[in-house]
Nucleic acid binder design. Structure first.
Length: 570
RNA sequence: GUCUCAGUAGCUCAGCUGGAUAGAGCACACGCCUUCUAAGCGUGCGGUCGGGGGUUCGAAUCCCUCCUGGGACGCCA
């Protein structure tokens, strides 16, 4: 009886003609107050179809329902409250988690299905800043969650490695840069050149024209332009790889915008053949007025490509190459219209897979009220944030646990985890106003709290000399030893993991997992303070240890889903 | 101006396809390390769920409207 919600939904449905178990399941809820049972069915909406009062329905169900595993039932003001047989519930769940181990919470929902996820996608020649973090960690979490649920995932880094900004960079490099400076200072020098370009361009607008013309040269295969471009790309990529390594994020493919240079022409042809495009002031565009949207520009008047052109080519390419069941774009919500347009164009082209395209939008990052702007040099480098976080964690470790071995390694795991968790803890649509104070606060609902709790479970288990999972397996757990409020609360939280993960997948919302981890950690810490685990009574000790082990397993599985490392000692 | 997203405690946020007295964390005050890591736990303080209508047995949740803020709106991405 692993899914007791479904179990009871089926039983109840069989007692009520014409009511599907699925509906019952959707209506059932977990009462906030345990006095009101462990599971509850509000009978109000049944009232109409059955033409009986909710209370009468609840009472009839109470009388008719004979379900094993139940302690008792109550019909209270229109609710049918189900009280589980706690010891059986505890025993069943603990056994299940112990046997499932790192698979606990997983499902095979995505068997045979492929999900392509386009995330991170930073712009070449610009530093990786706190704004890029969100797409990276949200995309990574969505990747991990889908994989856990049985999908085959393809993570694509759609690098911003093409476009007019390279024309600008080339102009700036030729005017003010040097090979030595770029080699030595790498991305810092590129950023400086880029910023200088915009400063100077305000005085001298012809610079913009030069930049455009250099980009046009790139598009026409000019050797000199392409050599510089290639060089800039390599420098940037090396920088990004460092960051990805720290974050523990990987991609299955680096297919930046330049990858589609030779794939846009056929798509433009197709648009023309299908008579979807028209020319306006020299530019080529798709009218979308009848869908309430501005037109989607496909070619500039000088014939060069645009964002839409490349994204369209990319979508067509991915459909052919991966035959995906979902293609997910992880970008901030400033691009909402762009993706609506893109998806509509795909639909108008007659591709049935338009319905499989999904834009996962997230809120914008500002810095103490002001917006980030690479041009103005107003960015906070992710590298700096990570360094600061690791440093601060390191200080805390020195103060609290100076004897810790692998101090540097642990500080890195926890510091970086703190930054990742901070980005994933709220609903993705929320804007973030970056402040050093928030980013470096490790009390309460934070990554370090979760990791600390995990380390605590490890510590107890180690002390009990039960770190081998196999030894837990064979223990006959006596559920009657885990009947106090705090233990039951932990067990109930453990039970919720599976459905929370699924919910996170359906809603494409990693924060559901983050919040779950906080909830579980809180429940565990209360239990930890209320019940001493390593008591002399063997039965009680083993039951509590088994529960600790299950918390450890579940925390670990959950942390992995959002990209947090799980250090055994902090 | 049009479209769109958001508005819940002083601050940051939960609140599942409407359900039982609206929940956490931070901050503030107090308490808890002679047993498992005090990055912890407990108690207290704190809310006209932006305003107003409507639908419903029942609305923070759905609909309308207004207010405030973010964002997008043809050759950037």
């Amino acid at each position: 009886m692993l899914n007791y919600k479904l179990h009871f939904a089926k039983k109840i449905s069989s007692l009520l003609a014409g009511i599907e178990a699925q509906d019952i399941m959707a209506w059932m809820e977990y009462p906030a107050n345990s006095d009101q049972g462990d599971l509850s069915l509000p009978c109000f909406r049944l009232s109409k179809t059955l033409s009986k009062s909710p209370q009468a329905i609840a009472e009839e169900l109470k009388a008719a329902l004979e379900v094993e595993h139940i302690d008792h039932l109550e019909a209270v003001s229109g609710y049918l409250n189900i009280y589980l047989n706690k010891s059986m519930f505890v025993e069943t769940l603990i056994r299940h988690i112990s046997h499932s181990g790192e698979r606990y919470g997983s499902q095979n929902l995505g068997q045979g299905k492929t999900v392509v996820i386009d995330y991170s996608s930073p712009n070449i020649a610009k530093p990786f800043h706190v704004g890029h973090l969100r797409s990276t960690v949200i995309g990574n979490a969505i990747y991990q969650i889908h994989t856990f649920l049985g999908y085959r995932c393809v993570g694509i880094n759609h690098l911003g490695d093409w476009g007019t900004q390279f024309g600008k960079l080339i102009v700036a490099y030729q005017l003010w840069g040097s090979k030595e400076a770029v080699n030595e200072r790498a991305i810092d020098e590129l950023l400086e050149l880029y910023v200088k370009f915009h400063d100077e361009a305000e005085e001298d607008p012809t610079l913009e024209d030069q930049a455009r013309s250099w980009f046009t040269k790139m598009e026409h295969g000019d050797q000199e332009a392409l050599a510089l471009w290639q060089w800039f790309v390599e420098i940037s990529l090396a920088e990004f790889q460092k960051i990805y390594k720290l974050l523990g994020v990987q991609f299955d493919a680096y297919q930046g915008e330049s990858f589609y240079n030779d794939k846009m022409e056929p798509v433009i042809q197709e648009l023309k053949e299908k008579q979807l495009v028209e020319e306006d002031e020299g530019a080529l565009l798709v009218r979308l007025d009848e869908f309430g949207m501005a037109p989607a520009l496909m070619l500039k008047k000088d014939g060069s490509s645009l964002y839409h052109t490349r994204d369209l080519a990319a979508a067509v390419y991915r459909a052919e190459k991966y035959d995906f069941d979902k293609l997910i774009y992880v970008t901030d919500y400033a691009q909402n219209l762009h993706f609506q347009q893109l998806f509509k164009v795909v639909e108008l082209m007659g591709y049935t897979w338009f319905s499989k395209l999904e834009h996962v939008a997230f809120g914008r990052v500002s810095i103490e009220g002001g917006s980030l702007s690479t041009r103005k040099g107003n960015v906070i480098r992710l590298e700096n944030v990570l360094e600061q976080a690791v440093q601060k964690i390191s200080d805390v470790i020195d103060a609290r646990n100076p004897g810790l071995v692998n101090k540097a390694k642990v500080a890195e795991k926890v510091g970086i985890g703190a930054v990742i968790f901070n980005d994933l803890s709220a609903n993705r649509i929320k804007d973030i106003d970056f402040s050093w104070e928030d980013a470096l606060n490790f009390d309460g609902e934070t990554g370090p709290y979760v990791q600390y709790t995990y380390a605590r479970t490890c510590s107890v288990l180690k002390k009990a000399q039960l770190h081998e999972r196999d030894e837990i397996h064979d223990i006959e757990i006596d559920g009657t030893c885990l009947q106090n409020t705090e233990a039951i609360a932990v067990v109930k939280m453990l039970y919720l993991f599976t459905e929370r993960v699924e919910q996170a997948m359906v809603k494409l919302e990693p924060s559901i997992v983050s919040r779950y981890l906080i909830d579980l950690a809180q429940a565990f810490n209360r239990f930890y303070h209320a019940c001493y685990i390593l008591v002399d009574d063997k039965q009680v000790r083993e039951a509590r240890l088994a529960l600790v082990k299950c918390v450890q397993t579940t925390l670990q599985n959950g942390m992995k889903l959002i990209g947090l490392q799980a250090p055994e000692e902090i």
